[in-house]
Design a protein around this nucleic acid. Structure first.
Lengths: 205, 205
DNA sequence: TAGATTGTTAATCGATTAACAATC
DNA sequence: TAGATTGTTAATCGATTAACAATC
């Protein structure tokens, strides 16, 4: 269970595994083979076995993988055994959409606050949370033990606000802006690049 | 300029090139070298030259790449030399966020309609477009020459609506649902998987 | 011309696949 | 035991990097 350095290629597949195993768990399935997983997920059975062996040995020959155990292992590697306190920065369209997305709460990402520069928005209530002034964010992160900031602000202010978040002690940034944020070690950034995705679509068409 | 089969790895880098070259163009920069690109984009110069050579020879030794030409070539490969007519299916949070995102229009993706099942929403106007009843979508795609549908509906109805869109003659689907859509050849699907991205973040933290 | 930088090939690295002995 | 399926190694495939002759 002492996980080796897991490659990015594997990490990008983990959420797919997770979602599928989750379904199996709900349906009270006991075990699943790499072959069955291969059929349903579209990765090769060989790759799946290799992936799983990256983070431990819990298959049984002639039986497959125990669903409960698999679920536990993958949850662990994905970091889903704990809850994360999150805040949204920017109460515009994307910020509001994310705020209203209930799915994330189920996965353990708990929305604790929403912040915006625009003083007109600071009385808005989204998903039971009142929008706060951005000036309060640094203290909030510190006091409320916030792990992840979801950054949905205009490009122009992205890096400046990012710096503030880091001063507050944020550990992860889910970045919906198109800016390549500069962050110190220990702060993880995951970019959601909608334009990139749309351009890929038109390229493939 | 007869482009070879461009690998997925290259395609995923194209939007980054595009965005950067776009900036250079705006700033009236004449030429750029693979070295300069390497510094600013973080890919190796070698990789950049290889990437560009995938789709034509337009560099000049001792000078670099002509920005205008580069922009034209990349636009062509990304399919940005034409406009795309798009519709949004599902006027919930994500649908509305995408509808209000002006960036896409600038890239040539023209929003022509918004559709929803919920009859209560069919009087809503988003970004100057009135939400229509989903029953009208098949005819709309056909009559208005719609290329791309942006799918923002609940999981449960995703495949069913996808089938309708295909009957209408849609060619590309930008899929915000978490469903692996089944589509015939000739219909391109690009998935935006927000949960996957969020899980990757917590995994890396 | 001299300097810069490409185009291109060969070397390296990493990820995927195939194969099969081990074993439940 | 016989059948199924893993764990694991070796082979293959593809992508990245290094190097340098060609040439603007």
């Amino acid at each position: 269970m002492n996980k080796k350095n897991i490659s990015m290629a594997v990490i990008r597949r983990l959420p797919k595994y997770y979602r599928y195993i989750n379904e199996l768990l709900k349906n009270n399935v006991d075990a699943v083979s790499s072959n069955k997983l291969s059929e349903d997920l579209g990765f090769t059975a060989s790759q799946i076995r290799n992936d799983f062996n990256n983070f431990g040995y819990f298959g049984r020959q002639g039986y497959g993988y125990n669903v409960k155990q698999l679920h536990k292992e993958i949850s662990m590697i994905l970091g889903l055994i704990k809850n994360y306190n999150t805040i949204i920065i920017g109460a515009g369209n994307i910020g509001q959409a994310v705020a209203n997305y209930t799915n994330f709460g189920q996965l353990g990402f708990k929305l604790k606050g929403i912040f915006d520069i625009n003083p007109k928005l600071t009385d808005l209530v989204i998903n039971d949370i009142r929008v706060r002034d951005i000036d309060l964010v640094e203290e909030f992160i510190c006091n409320k033990d916030i792990d992840i900031a979801i950054l949905c602000v205009p490009r122009a202010v992205a890096q400046k606000i990012c710096d503030t978040l880091i001063k507050g002690g944020i550990k992860g940034i889910w970045n919906f802006t198109q800016v390549d944020l500069i962050t110190p070690k220990g702060v993880t950034v995951e970019n959601v690049d909608l334009s990139d995705s749309l351009l890929t679509l038109s390229c493939l068409m």
